[in-house]
Design a protein around this nucleic acid. Structure first.
Lengths: 243, 243
DNA sequence: CGGTAGCTTGATCGGTATCAAACCGTGTGG
DNA sequence: CCACACGGTTTGATACCGATCAAGCTACCG
C-alpha cells in the first residue's frame, strides 16, 4: 500500500489555502493560530481501491477530505456489503464510533486527506471550544442524513431510491457538479446498489427507465443530466435533503 | 393535550437523584453546580400516543428521558412510516438535525422528560466544556447505531432483522429487562415492523417461526424470553452492538 | 487484437407485501 | 354477568417487486 505522490508528500501542509477550508471544520481556528493546526496534520493520499481504515479499527485518528471521493461500508459475515456513505471534499471522516470505527473506508478515486491523531485533536478542541462546537454541528447533520437514509432503505421503492440518490448527489458535489444539472458519478453501479440496498441490475434498469421517461439523460454510464427535477423530487418523496 | 400529573408537575426537579443521572449527560456537571442545571430544566410528561414534537419543528429544545419509552419516526407523503428509533430512560432526544428536527417523536407509554431550551443548553455547554464533550460522544454512538440500522435495512433478511432487534433491545433496557434474558416489548408489532422496514404480518410470522424453533418463548405478545442467544446472534450477523 | 471490468438486458425465481379472515384479551354498557 | 366492540395479533392464500441467473455488450488497456 504505497502513497500516491511519494515525492511531494510531507511538509506541504497549508491550511490557510486549503480547498476545503471554506466548508470544513478547520476554520473554527483563526489564521493567527493556524500553524497549531498545521503542525499536527499529516496529509495522506490513497489511490482508487485502497483502504483508509477497516471497520473496528481503533479510533485514534480523524480525517478531513481535501480532494477525491471515498466510500464507507459495513459487511456481513457472508460477504453482503452495505455502503453507508460517499464522502468527498470538505467532509469529515471518522466521526461514527467511539471505541472502533463503525465502518471501513475505501478510496473510489484518488483521495487526499488530512489525518489528525485523536489525542491531538482532543487537545485542539480543548483549546478551541468553537472547534468542538462545530464538530457537534457536523455530527448533528450526519445524524439527520443517516435518518434520511434509514427512511430510504426501510420504506422506498427502487425508483424512489434512485431518484433520492441523484438529488442527494446534486445537492452536494459543489466542485464535482459539472453544470447546474449535470453530475459526474464517480462510483460504479455496484457501489450505488450497495448504497441503496439494491442489486446492480436493478439500479441499471431504473437508470434505463428514467432515461426512457426523459427524467435523465446519460452521456456514458458516469455522466448524468437531470432533465426533470420536479418529477424526480416527487418520486424521492418531497423534502429529500440528505446531506 | 394535557400533561400527565397536573398536581405534581413543576418545581420537583431533582437532578442529584434523577433516575437517569448515572447514565445521562447531566453528570458532566458536578453536584456543587447542579442547581444551575435544575434552574433551566422543565420536566414534562406525555401519555401513550401523544406527540413530543413533529418532524421539521424548529430545534429549540433538547430532551432527556427520565422514564418511559418513545419512538422517533419519519413519514412519506403517502403515509408510509419509518420508525428510526425507540428511546428510553437516560437517552437524549433531539440531537439529529440543526434547523428542524430530523424526525417526529411520539410517546409509546407514559414518558417523562427533562426539557431544556437550546439557548440555555448552549450556554451551559460554554460554561462546562465537559458537557459538550459528552454530547459529542453521545452523537458518535448514535451515529454508529444509525450505521448499524442502515446495514440491517439495506442487507438483512426478515429473520435476521428480528434477531438483531431482539438482541439490540436486550443490550439496552437496563430497567426494562425483567430478568437476564426476558424482555418487555412495550411497542406493538406494527411499530416493530415500521422500525425494521417490514410489515406487521411478517414480524408476527418471524416471531412464530422463532418460537417454533425454540429460539424464543412468548408469554403473551409483549413478553419475550430469549432461549438461544448464540443462534440469534448468528442470525443477526456477528457483532450487533446497535446502541 | 484479445482480455477484462463494468454495464445493459432478458428470463425466471423467491421473499415479502398484500389481501383477507379469524382469534384473543380487554374494557364497556346493557 | 354477559354481549359486544375494538385494537392488536395470528394465520392463510395470492400477488408482485426486486433478486438471481444468464447472456451479450462496450470501452478501455495491455
Amino acid at each position: 500500500m504505497r502513497n500516491c505522490n511519494l515525492h511531494d508528500v510531507p511538509s506541504l501542509v497549508d491550511c490557510r489555502h486549503c480547498a476545503s477550508r471554506a466548508l470544513a471544520v478547520c476554520n473554527a481556528i483563526d489564521d493567527a493560530h493556524i500553524d497549531a493546526l498545521e503542525s499536527i496534520i499529516t496529509p495522506i493520499c490513497r489511490k482508487a481501491g485502497q483502504i483508509i481504515f477497516e471497520e473496528g479499527d481503533r479510533v485514534d485518528h480523524v480525517f478531513n477530505i481535501t480532494a477525491g471521493v471515498l466510500k464507507t461500508f459495513k459487511m456481513l459475515p457472508d460477504g453482503r456489503r452495505q455502503i453507508t456513505g460517499f464522502l468527498m471534499t470538505a467532509d469529515i471522516l471518522g466521526l461514527a464510533g467511539r471505541e472502533g470505527f463503525a465502518y471501513g473506508a475505501e478510496a473510489i478515486n484518488e483521495v487526499h486527506l488530512c489525518k489528525i491523531a485523536r489525542r491531538d485533536f482532543d487537545g485542539l478542541m480543548r483549546r478551541y471550544p468553537e472547534l468542538e462546537h462545530r464538530m457537534l454541528a457536523v455530527a448533528r447533520d450526519e445524524l439527520a442524513a443517516a435518518q434520511e437514509q434509514i427512511l430510504l432503505l426501510g420504506r422506498k421503492r427502487a425508483d424512489e431510491r434512485v431518484a433520492s440518490f441523484l438529488l442527494g448527489l446534486s445537492k452536494r458535489a459543489p466542485q464535482r457538479r459539472l453544470l447546474s444539472d449535470r453530475l459526474d458519478l464517480v462510483m460504479t453501479r455496484a457501489d450505488i446498489a450497495d448504497f441503496l440496498g439494491l442489486t446492480l441490475e436493478t439500479v441499471s434498469r431504473v437508470f434505463g427507465q428514467f432515461k426512457k421517461q426523459g427524467l435523465i439523460a446519460l452521456a456514458g454510464p458516469h455522466e448524468v443530466q437531470l432533465k426533470n427535477i420536479p418529477r424526480l423530487r416527487e418520486l424521492a418523496g418531497g423534502e429529500t435533503e440528505p446531506a
